[in-house]
Design a protein around this nucleic acid. Sequence first.
DNA 1: GCCGTTTTCGGCCCGACTGTTTTCAGTCG
Length: 577
Amino acid sequence: MARSNDEIAALLQEYADLIAITGGEAYRARVYEKAARAIGGHHADVSTLDAKGLREIPGVGRSIAEKVTEYLRTGSIAAVDELRSRIPAGVRRLTAIPTLGPKKALALYEELGISSVEELVEAIHAERLRDLKGFGPRTEENILHGVDLLRSAGDRVLLDAATDLAEDILGHLSEVTGCRRCAYAGSLRRVRETIGDIDVLAAAERSGPLMDAFTRLPYVTEVIARGRTKTSIRTVQGLAVDLRVVPPDSWGAALQYFTGSKAHNVRTRELAVRAGLKLSEYGLFDAESGERIVSGTEEEVYERLGLPWIPPPLREDRGEIEAGLHGELPDLVRESDLRGDLHTHTDLTDGLAPLEEMVRAAAARGYAYYAITDHGPDLYMQQMTEERMLAQRERVRELDGRFGKGRRGMRLLHGVELNIGPDGDVDWPAEFLAGFDVCVASVHSHFNQSRDAQTRRLVRACENPHVHVIGHPTTRILGRRPPLDADLDEVFAACARTGTALEINAHPDRLDLRDEDILRARRHGVRFAVDSDAHAVPHLANLRYGVGTAQRGWLTKEDVINTWPETRLRRFLRKGG
DNA sequence: GCCGTTTTCGGCCCGACTGTTTTCAGTCG
């Protein structure tokens, strides 16, 4: 399960939201928010820290340390419970709707008694918001649009939450006597960007002990169904998890079947039928005699269908069957291929950890190189200046090669995350930009420009000779913000023409570019950078989700610039110059 | 509520944008 850091961070964030909704001091809310982020991003598990250790976390003082201790001791925080009792949980849910913040949520609750998204939608349709001060027709429109966005993510959860949960479940199940193998399958194994429910598969002669252990997991709130081969539960976060137990000799066929996708399985079963075979979760059978031919491993199943083993991220019926039949499956990029991270932050801007801590953690991940890319001055809130940037550069040069393995240690690149303005301009003039080893440039505002303007803006950023990587290219945030409306093919063409890489931002609520866009960009001959955009030490590990997304986009090592040796990377960063 | 070679009190990321107003509140990054 998630570290206690994540549970506490969620609780403190909830407290901050409740303070804001109940009209508490804005500063108090902000302090709790900051502490939530700091604890969520802290490298050490807070359950192992004493009071002194807790207070060493920036933003955590006496009061918050006490609340953390209280939670670790009792499982709850009285102050949070007190505020919860005053405001229905649904009111806080309202603030998840983009453009609807704490003030509006409270007004809706106090004036109209609205405490759920459903009631809100109903009230808008009944035109009950019209008489409310501060609510006009555009507000109604924006709220309805926000609700649509929220619902487009549906009941699905982000990849990291689902992965954490699934790995915890596997940890528990693998210790059950008689469990021969277990793994997660389904969309999680295919690394889809959001997960509707988790499919866990286990192999055992007897299913009882596994089903027992499964239903007794600490976060189970409901056992939806329980049978001999399949049991379904719901967790505290509302996620449904299915456990299927199969005989060990059916493992491969079952794993293939439950990994999907449905479309991929339809294609594989068609192949089977054409070969006079029948494919099911129990194995590959001779259609006539009913005799089982293979079922032990996925490799055997695919092989008898005339296919190489197909990596799960490709199993979407997007041409992987044809590619497999012709021996043209890509040799997908792997996490171990990555030699470094090209987009990361420190506490000089909005990151949580100091430079040295981030560098040390990066070195521990075995990187050959690592770029520090704090925000430029155009994001006003970051308070960046040339002086501060140059001071950081000096420090970066001092730390260069001091950590990591190899004769030269881990090489540090001093970079920046520039802001792409409405016209495609970036923060600093060319002379100053020339001093950076790497410039990532990203859009952070003006999301509603026309399609033409948005396209021009991104193309101009690509044409800037100092911009090497376009960060989170569509700026979408899953369930919160739609992708920019731009002619992506034109942007991709500009990237290919100018030698600008596109980022695959690995943050689980971004995953931007997304898989379909990667497939399109690849056809233009674009290069990619898979980056964590880490704002804290634990975020560095998010790279795995970026790699999964890159795999879903059929990328190989060759396509991803941060798998390249440093000299080749540096050549790319000269951008044809 | 946190934090400090500007401070143990008085600050606290600060500006843009939107929609509602008629001078501003709320939300966002």
